[in-house]
């Protein structure tokens, strides 16, 4: 290896990198919370709603699962500003790319979370629903107090894994020139002519964060396996 490393750019660029990391964190946090919330709604609709509405939800999920996230980001990026201008009747309004990116992540991730929640609800036996009905609980009450709490425990490992996938997808906002952590690292690398160091540094940071998430998922998995063994 003939390359001479020089890592000094990284500490000097720290504030800029931290700003990038903040964007990554916002994408992750919003994508996860709203994605899980919307995904849960989709899953409940897919399982319990009347057939035409359930099929609509299924169509939504299959659509977003077959299209690359980058393409979804483009769609939202080009669709949102004119839509906003029409709705607000303000021809000069423009939306910052962060809003488009957030919307794209929530829309797409909800489809993935939906499938996990659906499997989780499916993992709670049909007898449990029957038991709630026999006690006179309404369907909403049954979901809220009996089915979803159990489903959540069963699907916790998958949710953690999906959230790691979400983190791995966040750098894709590069395509709409939104400066997340990878974008910040690339910018510093190009400015200082230290691309190699900055990309390696970014890779190590992502590796550490994702490993943490994977480790958590494995922990949850082991715990749920122990609970199964206790049954």
């Amino acid at each position: 290896m003939s390359y001479a490393f020089d890592w000094s750019s990284i500490p000097r660029a720290w504030p800029f990198l931290a700003d990038g990391m903040a964007v990554t964190a916002v994408l992750l946090a919003v994508g996860m919370t709203l994605g899980i919330a919307f995904g849960t709604v989709l899953a409940v609709v897919r399982i319990y709603a009347p057939r035409p509405i359930a099929l609509l939800a299924a169509g939504y999920v299959n659509f977003f699962r077959s299209v690359p996230l980058i393409l979804t980001i483009f769609w939202v990026f080009f669709l949102v500003p004119p839509l906003l201008r029409t709705v607000t009747a303000n021809p000069y309004l423009s939306a910052s790319p962060i809003w488009s990116a957030l919307a794209a992540f929530v829309l797409a991730e909800a489809a993935y979370y939906c499938e996990i929640v659906r499997a989780g609800i499916g993992s709670v036996g049909p007898g449990q629903m029957r038991a709630t009905q026999a006690l006179g609980l309404s369907r909403i009450q049954a979901l809220r107090y009996v089915i979803v709490p159990q489903a959540l425990r069963n699907m916790a490992p998958s949710l953690a894994n999906q959230t790691v996938s979400l983190l791995k997808d966040t750098p894709l906002v590069y395509v709409v020139s939104l400066t997340d952590f990878l974008g910040a690292a690339a910018a510093i690398g190009n400015r200082d002519g230290r691309i190699v160091e900055l990309y390696v540094f970014a890779a190590v940071v992502y590796l550490a964060l994702c490993s943490l998430g994977t480790w958590l998922a494995d922990l949850l998995q082991a715990r749920s396996r122990r609970r199964m063994a206790a049954q």
Partner: peptide
Amino acid sequence: VHLFRNTPLLVQLFLWYFVLPEWLPK
């Protein structure tokens, strides 16, 4: 498997495209 599953695909692509040529013998 751990390394390749726990880094973003885009980061991997940039490593191969921008970093690898610098690391290889000149």
